[in-house]
């Protein structure tokens, strides 16, 4: 798993790549929670996610819920086929805010 971070217009953008599994998801969870707990709007770009399991999904769910409590934005963007399949299996594809592109998500969150 690889996680790149940058900030645009006050929105923190994570680009998530590779395999997110039981071994790597704790790292994702920590990085996301750090930002949402700092009340930063967060976009997770998932185009490069080759594999994600329930522990990875759980990290996303926890961050999404924390963001909602903190009333900051949290969105997923540009999700790979294999990742969207897992979100569908988990019936979470309708729960998250999902954008086609990172830019669209940033525009939405920075306004």
């Amino acid at each position: 798993m690889n996680l790149d971070t940058r900030e645009e217009n006050g929105v923190v953008i994570f680009e998530l790549n590779g395999e997110v599994d039981l071994e790597t998801s704790p790292q994702l969870r920590q990085a996301l929670l750090e930002q949402v707990n700092a009340d930063k709007p967060v976009v997770v770009g998932m185009a490069g996610v080759a594999y994600i399991d329930s522990s990875g999904i759980a990290s996303l769910v926890e961050s999404y819920q924390t963001a909602r409590r903190n009333k900051t934005g949290f969105a997923l963007a540009d999700i790979s086929d294999s990742a969207i399949r897992v979100l569908q299996l988990a019936r979470l594809d309708k729960v998250f805010t999902i954008h086609d592109t990172i830019d669209a998500a940033v525009t939405e969150l920075s306004t």
Binding site: D53, S54, I57, A58, S59, V61, E62, Q65, A90, L92, V95
Partner: peptide
């Protein structure tokens, strides 16, 4: 019940 965990 949307929450982390228990999905496996």
């Amino acid at each position: 019940d949307v929450r982390p965990g228990g999905l496996g």
